[in-house]
Computed example of a mutant assay.
Amino acid sequence: MGHADAMGTAPAEGAGAPAVPRGGGLDAITAAAREIFAERGYHGTSIRDIAKRAGLSLSALYYWHPSKQHLLAALVEEITHDYFQRCDRALHEAGEDPADRLRALVRVTVEYRVGRRIESNIATLEWRNLEPENRDRLAGLRRSATQLWADLIADGVRRGEFHCPHPDDARRAIVAACNAIAQWYEPGGDISLPELAERYTQIALRIVDHRE
């Protein structure tokens, strides 16, 4: 039987179960959840709010997501997977030079935090509202992304291109700076996205003490 959060009741299975929604139902639900979570936060959002914003019935929403918690976890998982895949592509194209790889990883992170600003903030701010089972499962994805940065900086130190005495602190500083962009950057402002990415690549290279 489907599950429901405190804001609604899932339909029973069997003869009374809803028909499979057609068209862009799942996309509409995802978009609606993203918008309302950003506006009101997880606890300020009901499952009915999401269904109404998506233009769907509760039964149609429950076909895709049995609870509000399930929907939040799916959204965070998609966001994290998308970022990880973009990082993989950027590093593959960058080659083997540690400085080039750091530039690529910083650039793709800056672009991601700007291009998916709302989703990035949801993943950060609503992480605490994931239930332990979902948080534990998704923490593995986060650790994989963290390991990309750690391995890259360690390789640069090993090759003598990065001279930072504390690689873990360098990694944390770079990642924190890039992630914070989602909270303050306004597209169309004084800094263009290419300029912003270039600034942050230079900042990152200084943090790891890269010497030309």
Rank of each mutant, 00 (worst) to 15 (best):
M1S: 02
G2I: 14
D5C: 07
A6V: 10
A6Q: 07
T9N: 12
P11S: 15
P11L: 14
P11E: 10
P18I: 09
R22N: 06
G23C: 10
L26H: 05
I29T: 14
I29Y: 07
A31G: 14
A32L: 14
A38S: 15
R40I: 13
G41Q: 02
G41P: 05
K52R: 14
R53E: 13
L56F: 01
L56R: 03
L58Y: 14
A60I: 14
Y62R: 13
Y62E: 05
Y63F: 15
W64I: 01
W64N: 03
Q69I: 00
H70Y: 10
L71K: 07
A73C: 13
A73K: 13
A73S: 15
V76N: 01
E77A: 12
D82A: 01
Y83R: 07
F84E: 12
R86A: 14
R89P: 07
R89I: 06
E96P: 04
R101D: 05
L102G: 08
L105T: 12
R107D: 14
V108H: 04
V108C: 12
T109A: 08
V110R: 08
Y112P: 09
Y112N: 11
R113Y: 00
V114L: 09
V114I: 14
S120M: 05
I122Q: 02
L125N: 12
W127Y: 14
N129C: 02
E131C: 09
D136Y: 04
L138A: 02
L138K: 00
A139K: 03
A139R: 03
A139S: 06
G140I: 06
R142E: 12
R143P: 08
S144E: 09
T146L: 11
Q147D: 12
W149E: 11
G156V: 01
V157P: 11
R159F: 08
G160R: 10
E161A: 08
F162M: 08
C164W: 01
P167Y: 11
D168I: 02
D169Y: 00
R171V: 02
A173N: 00
I174C: 04
V175T: 01
A176Y: 00
A180L: 10
A182D: 05
W184I: 08
D190E: 13
S192Y: 09
R199I: 02
R199L: 01
R199W: 00
Y200K: 02
T201R: 04
Q202A: 15
I203S: 00
A204P: 03
A204I: 00
R206Y: 00
H210K: 08
R211P: 14
E212L: 15
